[in-house]
Computed example of a mutant assay.
Amino acid sequence: MHMWYWFGVDLGSFLFPGYNVTTVWGLVATCLGLAALAVIYEAMKISQIHLQQITIKSVSRTNSTTSESSSLLFKVTPKNLRAYTKCGTCCSWILQVLHWSLHTLLGYILMMAVMTFNAYITIALVIGGCIGYWIFGSTLVDLNMQQFYRKRAIVECDKNCEDVFTNRQRQGSAVSIIAEQLVTEANIEVHVSANAINT
C-alpha cells in the first residue's frame, strides 16, 4: 500500500475484495464511477435539506392544532421533535435517517478511495465533486439562505409574540385586579347598606 501519491494503473484489489483494477480501461471505468458517486454525494446534500424541511413541516402541522397561544409561539424544539419521532406515522423521519446513513456511507467510501493515494482516483473525485457543486451548489446556497431567513423570522416572531403574549397576560391580570376591586367595593357597599338599614 502506498503512503504517497503515485500515478499507476495497477491498483490491485480496490476497496472491495474481488474488485481488481489492473488495466487502463478498468482504471478509467473506476474513475468515471467514482466521479459519478462524487456528483451523487453533492446531490444528496440537497435532498437531505428537503427531507429536513418535510420533517419540520410535519412536526409543525401536528403541533399547531394544540392551542391558539401555542401555535403563535410555536417553534420546533428537541422536545417537539422527540415527540414526533416517537409517533406511529414517522415515515419521513425514517426516510431522513436512512438518507443520512447512505450519505455518510458514501462519504466514507469516497474517503477510502482517496486514501489509496492514487493520483488518478483523487483527480477523478475532485472533478466529480466540482461538477456536482457546479450543478447543485447554487441550489444548496439558496436552501441554506432560506433556512437562515426562516430561522431569523422565527426568532423575530418569538420576540414579538413573546411581547404580545406578555401584554395579554398583563391585560388579563389588570382586568382581574380591577374585577377584584369592584367585587370588594360591591361587598363594602352591601355591608354598608345592610348596616345602615339595621340602625
Score class of each variant (00 low, 15 high):
S13N: 11
G88M: 06
T66E: 13
M145E: 03
G129T: 07
I197E: 13
K151R: 15
I46N: 11
A113W: 00
S71P: 00
G12N: 05
V24W: 00
S69G: 06
I188V: 15
M145H: 09
K45L: 11
V59G: 07
R61E: 08
Y41A: 12
L37G: 06
L110G: 14
I56R: 01
C91S: 10
S67K: 14
Q181V: 11
N80I: 06
K151L: 12
F74M: 06
L95E: 06
N20I: 10
L102T: 08
T85C: 03
L27D: 14
N144G: 15
V59N: 07
E156V: 04
Y5P: 06
C91E: 11
C87T: 11
N144D: 10
L102C: 06
S47L: 10
G26R: 03
S193M: 10
W93G: 05
L182I: 12
L98S: 09
G8C: 05
K159T: 11
D142C: 01
A83W: 03
Q146H: 08
E156K: 02
T55A: 09
S47Y: 12
G18M: 08
D163I: 09
T85R: 07
T184I: 04
N63V: 06
N63W: 04
C130E: 05
D158T: 15
S60G: 07
L32G: 11
T122C: 00
R170Q: 09
V141I: 10
A38R: 10
F136Q: 00
A119F: 15
N160F: 14
Q52H: 12
Y120M: 03
A174C: 10
L72M: 14
V175K: 13
T62V: 03
H103I: 10
T104I: 09
A124R: 02
V192H: 10
F14K: 01
L73M: 12
E185F: 05
K86E: 15
L98H: 13
I94E: 03
I135A: 12
V192K: 14
I188T: 15
C130L: 14
V164E: 14
H103R: 09
W134I: 03
K86N: 13
N20C: 01
Y149L: 14
D10G: 02
S60N: 11
V190Y: 11
T22I: 09
T122M: 01
R82G: 01
N144Q: 15
G129R: 02
T166L: 11
D163A: 14
R152I: 08
I178K: 00
C157T: 11
M112D: 12
G88K: 14
L143P: 01
R170S: 04
R170N: 11
V76Q: 05
Y5L: 15
N80Q: 10
I109Y: 10
A35T: 05
Y108A: 13
C157W: 08
H50N: 14
C130I: 11
V97A: 10
C31A: 06
R170K: 15
L95I: 06
A174N: 15
N198M: 15
A196C: 05
N63P: 00
A113N: 02
L125Q: 13
F136P: 02
